[in-house]
Simulated assay, not measured.
Amino acid sequence: MSTPKRIVLPKIEDRRGNLSVIEEDSLPFKFKRVYYLYDVPSGASRGGHAHCKQSALLIALSGSFDVKIKNGISVEIFTLNKPNEGLLIPNGYWRELDNFSSGGICLVLASGAFEEEDYIRDYKEYLKFKRS
Score class of each variant (00 low, 15 high):
residue 28 P to I: 02
residue 30 K to T: 15
residue 91 N to D: 11
residue 48 G to E: 12
residue 114 F to R: 10
residue 110 A to L: 00
residue 87 L to H: 03
residue 99 N to D: 11
residue 77 I to L: 02
residue 28 P to V: 00
residue 117 E to G: 11
residue 62 S to A: 13
residue 83 P to C: 06
residue 40 V to Q: 06
residue 92 G to W: 12
residue 77 I to D: 05
residue 78 F to Q: 04
residue 42 S to I: 06
residue 81 N to K: 12
residue 101 S to T: 12
residue 33 R to I: 09
residue 88 L to G: 05
residue 36 Y to R: 12
residue 28 P to A: 05
residue 52 C to W: 07
residue 60 A to C: 07
residue 38 Y to H: 15
residue 31 F to Q: 07
residue 76 E to I: 05
residue 98 D to R: 03
residue 119 Y to F: 14
residue 27 L to M: 07
residue 27 L to Y: 08
residue 85 E to C: 03
residue 91 N to H: 15
residue 54 Q to H: 06
residue 64 S to G: 09
residue 81 N to R: 05
residue 60 A to Q: 01
residue 31 F to M: 12
residue 87 L to P: 03
residue 110 A to N: 11
residue 92 G to A: 10
residue 38 Y to A: 11
residue 116 E to V: 10
residue 82 K to P: 01
residue 48 G to S: 06
residue 42 S to H: 11
residue 31 F to P: 05
residue 92 G to Y: 11
residue 108 V to S: 13
residue 28 P to T: 05
residue 63 G to Y: 01
residue 101 S to C: 07
residue 97 L to C: 07
residue 27 L to Q: 09
residue 25 D to Q: 13
residue 109 L to V: 05
residue 93 Y to C: 03
residue 98 D to L: 07
residue 60 A to N: 04
residue 34 V to C: 13
residue 75 V to Y: 04
residue 116 E to F: 09
residue 105 I to L: 11
residue 37 L to N: 12
residue 79 T to K: 14
residue 70 K to N: 10
residue 112 G to P: 00
residue 67 V to R: 01
residue 85 E to I: 02
residue 100 F to P: 09
residue 81 N to T: 03
residue 57 L to K: 01
residue 40 V to T: 09
residue 115 E to T: 03
residue 75 V to A: 10
residue 43 G to L: 04
residue 80 L to W: 01
residue 93 Y to Q: 05
residue 75 V to W: 01
residue 89 I to M: 03
residue 88 L to E: 07
residue 116 E to T: 09
residue 66 D to Q: 05
residue 83 P to Y: 13
residue 65 F to D: 03
residue 95 R to K: 14
residue 32 K to P: 05
residue 62 S to H: 13
residue 98 D to M: 06
residue 95 R to N: 11
residue 106 C to W: 12
residue 70 K to G: 01
residue 43 G to R: 00
residue 108 V to T: 15
residue 31 F to K: 06
residue 42 S to D: 12
residue 71 N to P: 01
residue 119 Y to Q: 08
residue 97 L to M: 15
residue 95 R to C: 10
residue 86 G to E: 03
residue 88 L to H: 05
residue 66 D to V: 02
residue 104 G to D: 03
residue 25 D to V: 01
residue 98 D to F: 14
residue 40 V to M: 07
residue 112 G to R: 13
residue 30 K to V: 14
residue 52 C to A: 14
residue 52 C to Q: 15
residue 52 C to F: 13
residue 101 S to G: 09
residue 33 R to C: 10
residue 119 Y to K: 08
residue 78 F to N: 02
residue 46 R to T: 00
residue 92 G to S: 08
residue 77 I to Y: 03
residue 80 L to S: 06
residue 100 F to W: 04
residue 109 L to A: 07
residue 37 L to E: 09
residue 80 L to T: 02
residue 57 L to Q: 02
residue 117 E to K: 13
residue 116 E to G: 12
residue 56 A to G: 12
residue 24 E to C: 00
residue 114 F to L: 11
residue 26 S to E: 11
residue 105 I to F: 12
residue 80 L to A: 04
residue 116 E to W: 00
residue 40 V to A: 02
residue 74 S to H: 08
